[in-house]
């Protein structure tokens, strides 16, 4: 946006400075970056494939004198490669579902808030009804809709119902800015409703949207792991953090590393995204400290 006033640039520069001063958020962001790099590059450093069975090394613990750096599972598959494959799936799905929910939620909330009146009532009523049902029910109903294993389609659908909170946040923001002078000015210069929504309302709700999106990613990662843990998500031989934790939990009496390795990665990722989200909130919304 070329016409952005200096004050607007100042806001983002300020936010960036505040974020950089937040140690927890910066450590979290660095860790997320490192884990992402590891997840996409790491598997090619190991001589093993994620589904290759090593008959000579079954259920060996990490650190044993062989090239399975984090040990193997009951079937002799390399846990380092499988866990990183799981992280890959988690990150991709977290991002995909968040983007979908972002898209729908922002448009829905902005439209409802801007148009107001009966349309607003109807649109928010839909949100209320979907809200009243535990989210996981919708997810489980949806999981019956798709061939099991096609996790990407499933998460497109989960993102498509995960937009409720986003819609509420955006609607609230829209209500507060739609009476401002610049909207009036746009109206007076003949901009149509879609133009006002996309060019004037949506750019002005970016702050809260970024914050909430950062907090949505770990939720979506958690949902994927949750579904895979229950056997409704990623199917064998594909690995996901959830399915690995499930396998690990069954073997924990004899092979505790099979639980601890994927659980460690999942917990680290979730904590990092939460800290980053909190940091962004403090940086972008200094009133709410």
């Amino acid at each position: 946006m070329t016409e952005a006033a200096p004050a607007a640039r100042g806001f983002w520069a300020d936010a960036w400075r505040r974020l950089r001063r937040n140690k927890a958020a910066m450590v979290a962001a660095t860790l997320i970056l490192l884990i992402t790099l590891l997840a996409f590059i790491g598997p090619s450093l190991s001589p093993h494939a994620f589904d290759a069975i090593d008959w000579d090394h079954m259920a060996v613990p990490p650190g044993a004198p062989n090239d399975h750096w984090l040990g193997t599972d009951r079937l002799g598959r390399d846990l380092y490669v499988r866990t990183l494959a799981g992280v890959q799936i988690s990150l991709q799905i977290g991002l995909l579902a968040t983007l979908v929910s972002l898209f729908i939620g922002v448009l829905w909330g902005a439209t409802a808030g801007y148009l107001g009146g009966r349309i607003d009532n109807l649109m928010m009523r839909v949100v209320d009804i979907l809200y009243s049902l535990p989210y996981i029910f919708i997810v489980i109903i949806l999981s019956t809709l798709f061939e099991r294993g096609n996790i990407y389609v499933l998460f497109l659908a989960i993102g498509a119902v995960g937009w409720l909170t986003m819609a509420r946040i955006v609607r609230g923001q829209t209500l507060s800015i739609k009476r401002k002078e610049f909207i009036e000015a746009a109206l007076a210069s003949g901009v149509g409703t879609p133009g006002i929504l996309l060019r004037h309302i949506v750019p002005n709700v970016v702050g809260p949207v970024i914050i909430y999106a950062t907090l949505t990613i770990p939720q979506m990662i958690l949902f994927e792991s949750f579904l895979s843990f229950l056997g409704l998500g990623v199917q064998e031989p594909q690995a996901s953090l959830g399915s690995l934790i499930n396998e690990g939990a069954q073997e924990m009496e004899s092979a505790v590393w099979m639980l601890l390795v994927p659980a460690g990665f999942l917990v680290t990722l979730l904590m990092c995204f939460n800290f980053l989200g909190d940091g962004l909130r403090d940086a972008l919304d200094p009133r709410d400290r």
């Binding site: 939990a249 009496e253 999942l266 979730l270 904590m271 939460n274």
Partner: peptide
């Protein structure tokens, strides 16, 4: 509290079973 909110039940459950059960 931060830890308690971030840790999902399917991680804490098996860990509790491991520590307090096994």
């Amino acid at each position: 509290a931060v830890l308690g909110i971030a840790l999902p039940g399917f991680v804490t459950g098996p860990l509790f079973a491991l520590i307090f059960g096994l």
